[in-house]
Amino acid sequence: MTAYVGLLRAVNVGGRQIKMDTLKQIAADLGFEKVQTFIASGNLLFISARREPEVKAMIEDALKDIFRAPVEVMVRTAKEMAEVEAANPFADEPGNRVAAIFFDAKADAGQIEAAKNISDERLALGTREIYVHFPSGQGRSKLKLGGKAPGTARNMNTVCKLAELVREMA
């Protein structure tokens, strides 16, 4: 059995709303165990004997049925979440001013090189993440990463809490 975090992209912003109780029920219906959510931004924690690609596909298929449109989900194991937390190159900065942008595949330096609208942001390459320090705040940033791979961002306060919660499940 593996403890996972599923990070839903672009839910509970704009018109794509889902209650966390509904998300928990979806995960339970898929056969996942010890299901929980953290804050209302699409963070799903669960245990499954299935491998990452399969749990990702299962969640995305279930969400597609609800939203009638694709919803990308980035999945990480407890070990991977701990690695994301530990690899934060901006650990000396406030956690609410640093984000990890999660991708399905290996992050590409070209995404950073092709970034647009950089003002005071600092970017660093992770494994399947790109870290961004937002000195003026993420809400004020106009930063656009290069590339077409969908990703989803979580600030480091959230990453650290998710890493702690999923570690406790493992």
Rank of each mutant, 00 (worst) to 15 (best):
R154G: 00
N88V: 09
D29V: 08
V159A: 00
F103C: 04
S136D: 11
P53S: 05
A57W: 02
A109V: 13
D65Q: 12
R167H: 10
P70S: 02
L165C: 03
G14K: 03
P70D: 13
V166H: 01
A100F: 14
V5Y: 10
S48K: 06
L165N: 03
L162G: 01
E80D: 10
R68Y: 06
I18T: 02
F46N: 05
E52A: 13
A107W: 11
A91S: 15
K79I: 09
A87H: 10
M1D: 12
F90T: 11
A170Q: 11
L162K: 01
A40Y: 11
M81V: 05
P135E: 01
K144D: 00
K64F: 04
D120Y: 01
T152C: 00
M81C: 12
E33D: 15
G31R: 09
E168T: 09
A86S: 14
I112S: 02
E85D: 13
E168V: 05
P150A: 00
F134P: 10
K19Y: 09
K116N: 07
T22Y: 09
G15C: 11
K148V: 00
K24N: 10
L30R: 05
A170E: 14
G15P: 05
G42I: 12
G147A: 07
E33F: 09
T152W: 05
E85I: 08
A170M: 03
D108R: 05
G126H: 06
A115N: 04
A28T: 15
Q25V: 05
T22S: 11
N157R: 13
K161L: 02
T77S: 14
E83N: 11
L123S: 11
N12S: 11
L162M: 04
Y4T: 06
E113R: 13
A153L: 07
L123C: 11
L165K: 11
G151K: 07
F134Y: 15
E129I: 06
R140A: 13
S41P: 06
E83S: 12
A27N: 08
N88K: 03
P89T: 07
I47F: 00
K19C: 02
V159F: 01
